[in-house]
Amino acid sequence: MTIDIFLQQLVNGLTLGAFYGLIALGYTMVYGIIGMINFAHGDIYMVGAFISLIGFLLFSALGVASVPVAILLVLVVAMVFTAVYGWAVERIAYRPLRGSQRLAPLISAIGMSIVLQNFVQLTQGARVKPLPPMVQGGYRFTLGTDAHLNVSLLQALIVFLTVALMAGFTYIIRRTPLGRAQRATEQDATMAALLGVNVNRTISITFIIGASLAAVAGLMATLYYGVIDFFIGFVAGIKAFTAAVLGGIGSLPGAMLGGLVIGMIESFWPVYFDLAYRDVAVFGVLVLVLIFRPSGLLGRPEIEKV
């Protein structure tokens, strides 16, 4: 492989990784705070993608001509409405089950995922929805004779947006009272409640943040791939969840790292091997990592006390 293909796949992998990392954050936060696999998160991302697409059409009908303004408006609208979905899913399907047996919320989450998928299929139709490319152009770097590196404007935007969101998000978790409440609830919900943390509200906010990050990923997918359907949440969801586990579930930097690793595997695998078996490679790497580092790349090993 020549250097230009290598760099090109690196850029593509980075884009994909940013995208998986954003969804993985939602999984890892929810797992950290209430210890459940939020199976419906992939479908929240799918809802986010649909809301973005509807938003684009609506704003263009309302006469917003400038593309950057439209993207900014859609970003806000998609984050807000998807957050409502995230909040409602938690309120309806998970909160009544807090404190019951471990598998109850999981089944409820799978049920919610089925409901969301079929709700969107019913209301928006089963056909694939195409969006003509909105952001065009990019940068072309010359690496030598006949060797070029193309970075599209959209890729730059995705990576930039992800880094900005990650920075803001890390600030919230590390420095604000909300982040403190979140970390306290994560460590010991009962103790946090006794010390005056509103546990229910903190968990709700976790879901809201996770859903709005997923909405950003949904917007990116709409722009980047240009086609969406009601089933995209499943595959993206299990890949992002794999990323969260790979990085060490419960660890926020781990989710981003896991997303990057998955993105790189996905972009480099087809260069060498059969594209059809790409997903096999993703899960294969997951198994390998877990055998040698059972708590993921950045996860802390669990110490059990008797």
Binding site: A93, S100, I107, S108, G111, V115, N118
Partner: peptide, 17 residues
């Protein structure tokens, strides 16, 4: 399928065990 998923959620909430 919507009823199927909804039933999963409702039964779980009604009888978590």
């Amino acid at each position: 399928m919507i009823a199927f998923g909804g039933a999963m959620v409702l039964i779980m909430i009604w009888r978590p065990g």
